[in-house]
Design a protein around this nucleic acid. Structure first.
Lengths: 250, 250
DNA sequence: GGAGCATGGTTGTCTTGACAAGTCCAGTCA
DNA sequence: TGACTGGACTTGTCAAGACAACCATGCTCC
């Protein structure tokens, strides 16, 4: 993201974007730029504090503050005695919890399975195009699947994807990796919108879930932005079950 | 909230809750307890770093870290060259949008009205006490109201309140100020948990809302923490309508 | 009286140095 | 072979001191 190449007399790897910018901010920007450029991928090890001291020429306390704040923000994970790592795809949301249903089920000790009902292309109608900020008739990818926990259907997922974000979406095997997980590996969500609605399931969805059509269902609309564009919309229908959102404010 | 009385040889005003607790955490707890007890009110000036150094016997770096983290969390406001102050009540939600239904309706151009069905005391049963982290049979405040938009019922609110947070809750006129607005003025929420559930409304609630009892409803459980304790639980029943949560991730 | 200035107090940041606590790995000993 | 131990490395925390930036106050000078 940033140029950030070494330069002059000091051992500094730091750009010095502005003389007034605190050095710990410069360290943070330095780390962020490496992560954003992909040079340091998810789960990769970040240089140790001592190495960063040598690289950048600032004191360890300053490096420590930069790393600590990035860890507090959820971008890094620090393990005492081991090192500092680029945070995995999961904790991408530090506030509004975006959960992967497979993980959620695994946490409960259940066995997750997904059945792909359809996977293909779709032309956006007016409303859908507007939701994506794309021209009408633009091509979208669509997947429809049923998630099961220990054999019981717990969620119907209808997923629409902006091809720009995940051009190889249609080649994936979503019985092995959830769309959620695949998409967050393609593009980190920057912004999320949730709309939760209580409805009765449409007949085809009710049939897929194996529930009577008058059963109250929870329909979660989720819209996710990445790189400033709408990356994906998900329509998640839960029969009866609850949906936990929770989020810490600090 | 905390005992926090001086003790021994050091000039420390600090309790030493556990020898392993970092000192900057102790300073944070010290400040928080003063604010929570009301000793330091909103907009009051907090002792300067130098004064806290003398009071607590730790170094300025440590005091600075404690104050900085509390300021980052929004509980304090720091002004260079002036001092540190207890933050006002407004900026309570910086991330997860906690909406006031009256505001929400006003934004849509509607007319909000609230009808108070009941307002009084309640003894917590086991489950409720556990949710609040209080002993069984502890006293809670409870309000039940119906919110209307242009005369039409849009939300049934059952509100349980920890008396410690809002001792004068029962004296309020909730047809004029929403419980949400009153409570956030008492204590800024630090953490929020949402659970959303699709149900059918209980008969009494359905009657209050004027809907048939088989109508699918959205039930939002909301639990809010302030000053490290559970401040309030809200059970919000929405007939058919949608509930927007949205939230920016950075 | 009014404008400008010096001063003391406050927060913001940084450095050097240090110790504690945790993990990992290789080498040692039974 | 297996258990244990020690050292190297890492992060977590803290101290003491220093300088910069900023603000409010009171003072001086006009």
């Amino acid at each position: 993201m940033l140029p950030a190449m070494p330069s002059s007399e000091t051992p500094a790897l730091l750009p010095t974007p502005s003389p007034a910018t605190p050095r710990y901010q410069q360290i943070k920007a330095f780390i962020l730029s490496r992560v954003a450029s992909g040079e340091w991928g998810v789960e990769d090890r970040v240089p140790s504090e001592h190495e960063l001291v040598k690289l950048t020429g600032v004191s360890r306390v300053t490096v420590n503050r930069a790393l600590r704040e990035l860890a507090d923000a959820g971008l890094l994970v620090r393990v005492q005695g081991v090192g500092t790592f680029v945070a995995g795809a999961k904790p991408q949301s530090n506030l509004l919890e975006l959960r992967d249903i497979a993980e959620e089920i695994a946490e409960r000790g259940g066995m997750h399975a997904a059945e792909v009902l359809s996977l293909g292309r779709l032309r956006a109608d007016a409303a859908m195009a507007a939701a994506f900020g794309l021209p009408e008739q633009a091509e979208l990818f669509r997947a429809r699947l049923v998630h099961r926990e220990d054999g019981m259907a717990v969620q119907f997922e209808e997923r629409l994807v902006n091809p720009v974000i995940a051009p190889r979406f249609l080649e994936q095997d979503f019985s092995r990796i959830t769309p959620y997980r695949y998409l967050t590996s393609c593009a980190p969500p920057e912004r999320v919108e949730h709309v939760v609605e209580a409805t009765r399931a449409a007949p085809d969805i009710a049939a897929s879930l194996g529930i009577p059509p008058d059963e109250p269902c929870l329909l979660v609309h989720r819209r996710t932005w990445s790189w400033r564009v709408v990356a994906t919309r998900a329509f998640l229908t839960h029969p009866g079950t609850r949906y936990r959102l929770g989020g810490a404010l600090d």
